[in-house]
Design a protein around this nucleic acid. Structure first.
Lengths: 198, 198
DNA sequence: TACGATACGGAACGCAGTTCCGTTTTACAA
DNA sequence: TTGTAAAACGGAACTGCGTTCCGTATCGTA
């Protein structure tokens, strides 16, 4: 149900050589543009950077969001894979959870505006949102369950809410240097340690 | 430095009768449209609802965001005024803080997409963001300080971060009925009660 | 080498916010 | 009451965005 099947439509071996090359060129160009101009960079800018036309862009990525997914797919997967590893390594499940959250936040904050783009409603990033959640919620769930089982945190918060909360708190880190999302996320984690509300 | 001086350019008595009437018509129309279509409703839709042209719209509100501010100004002010009242009434400062947060969240969540629109970067809502913060941060600060002075919460979180956090957590409440922002906000409040991190 | 399938480029479309300007309405003075 | 300048009006038009469409170029094979 994941990367093991090579039926990815926009990443596996398509057909013609130039097509494959252009797809990769677009991915590279997008990665570069996202660094300088943020994930909201216009499609035209990405296509120009890649030196291809708009038609080419949209044949490879039916929608702007599909490109964003493709660009960040690896990193989402890395984040997902880090979960179990941290759990195995860390002194306690909660410590692993903290480290994982840190990784997750790094990811969101490093890419300019990614967190904001993840809001399902706005510009059509539902697909990104969905992939994110599909891949990461189970991992996060595992970490939360382990910490709850160890009695380190209250057990009444599902991974979906937890991740949405963190994702939301990361919004706007670029636009305002005063804002420190990690501080609030730390508070959220502190709140998790509180005993069940009477 | 606030509503006492009648120099508000877009709310006080301007000059001509039709101008004043149209301004009010636009405010009413906007309030109505925001309820049905959210704060992201196109300017054209609002102008049409009001039965005026686009020129009229932009003479009264130089920018889309200025209209949004004008529409919600009263409610922001109400929220600001509620702070001291709750502090005086509540059994403890923390209880007042909880109630005030509830009010604030109501406000953000009731208006479709307001929380999302408040992100400074996106569509030009810096002005709304600014008014919000100017008006509410001092109030929130007062509540936090009182609770901290009473030893009910840790004293190391400034009102700006607290409000940004709450605002961010409220993002996306319309787009996904599963998501319950209040739950996460409660967690944030619980985190506030934790003693200072060693 | 020829030719059909595949991919390409970019003009064009729809939909935002905003600007501009010719026309209408208002308020006031004669 | 009527003339007139200032103020306000309406909406066509401009910019910038994502996306679609289609004539043209390229690829791979017979």
């Amino acid at each position: 149900m994941n990367e093991s099947s090579p039926r990815q439509g926009s990443s596996a071996a398509s057909k013609r050589k130039d097509a494959r090359r252009n797809q990769q060129t677009l991915l590279d160009a997008a990665a570069a543009v996202f660094v300088t101009s943020g994930v909201d960079a216009p499609v035209r800018e990405i296509a120009a950077e890649a030196g291809v036309g708009l038609g080419t862009f949209y044949r490879h990525f039916p929608t702007r969001a599909d490109l964003v997914i493709a660009v960040y797919r690896h990193q989402v997967d890395n984040c997902a894979e880090a979960g179990p590893a941290l759990l195995a390594a860390g002194p306690t499940p909660f410590a692993a959870l903290e480290r994982w959250v840190d990784l997750f936040v790094d990811f969101l904050v490093t890419k300019h505006g990614l967190a904001a783009a993840m809001q399902a409603d706005s510009t059509g990033f539902e697909a990104l949102h969905a992939h994110f959640l599909d891949r990461l919620v189970p991992v996060c769930s595992q970490l939360l369950d382990a910490a709850a089982a160890a009695g380190e945190i209250r057990p009444d918060l599902d991974a979906y809410h937890f991740m949405r909360g963190i994702g939301n708190l990361c919004i706007g880190t670029d636009s305002d240097p005063r804002y420190d999302a990690r501080r609030l996320i730390a508070l959220l984690l502190a709140g998790l340690r509180q005993p069940h509300r009477t």
